[in-house]
């Protein structure tokens, strides 16, 4: 079994969603991650969820307000899964709620 990171790139930020839509989105994520955990393929207790905001440090001490302006999809979070092959890891990524709103899932092998 190898390890892969599933990186969620969102077009929209969870924080900017209308309050009444949040629970449904939240549930979709929990069901999706629960489905991977049910297969015994999730590593760690949960993934990492990134809040919006933050800063970016660049050479020569330049600090900007985040990377969001430069790439269309911003990194929203990640989970680590185990799978035999990259293809299997991609199969696990199917149904990821990140894609519901035009986002994507990047599947990357992890060096062991």
């Amino acid at each position: 079994m190898k390890e892969f990171a599933l990186l969620f790139r969102h077009v929209e930020d969870f924080d900017t969603l209308p309050e009444d839509e949040k629970p449904a989105v939240e549930k979709k994520w929990q069901d999706w991650i629960g489905g991977i955990a049910a297969q015994g393929k999730l590593i760690g207790e949960a993934g990492v969820r990134l809040a919006s905001g933050g800063k970016v440090l660049k050479p020569a001490g330049v600090v900007t307000d985040g990377p969001f302006v430069e790439i269309r999809e911003c990194l929203g979070g990640l989970i680590v899964v185990k799978a035999d092959t990259l293809e299997e890891a991609v199969t696990l990524a199917h149904g990821c709620p990140a894609m519901d709103r035009g986002g994507s899932v990047e599947v990357r092998p992890i060096f062991v």
Partner: peptide
């Protein structure tokens, strides 16, 4: 059953076992 499903989702994250996975699927 939605509440139970969410609880099983949580349980799987801290304590995976085939039995929990099956119960979670039943709740689903």
């Amino acid at each position: 059953w939605q509440s139970i499903l969410q609880l099983y989702n949580q349980l799987l994250l801290i304590n995976y076992s085939p039995a929990v996975a099956l119960n979670r699927t039943y709740a689903l």
